[in-house]
Amino acid sequence: MSEHHEKPEISPAARRFIIALCVLAAVLVALEFIIHRHAYFTTEGQPLFFAVYGFIAFIVVVAGGVGLRKLVMRDIDYYDQGERDE
């Protein structure tokens, strides 16, 4: 997943955005221990369920997409080539 591109440079604006995001995330984690979340399922009731699941789900979606590329990615003129062949 990592071999073909290097780390992008982070602009000052992006850095400020990331810091703000981390602060917000920290606040949301803190609120978990103040606000009661009503849960329908046991899993949902686990501490920080949504934070953990959201993070993991996002990574799985992207990783799944990368895996899917091997299966379904073709040249941009894939269908045009096909028409020429036939």
């Binding site: 995330a25 978990e32 934070a51 959201g54 993070f55 990574i59």
Partner: peptide, 11 residues
């Protein structure tokens, strides 16, 4: 939490 941590995953 779901949304912000998913954005953190993107970052």
């Amino acid at each position: 939490q779901l949304l912000i941590f998913a954005i953190l995953a993107f970052v």
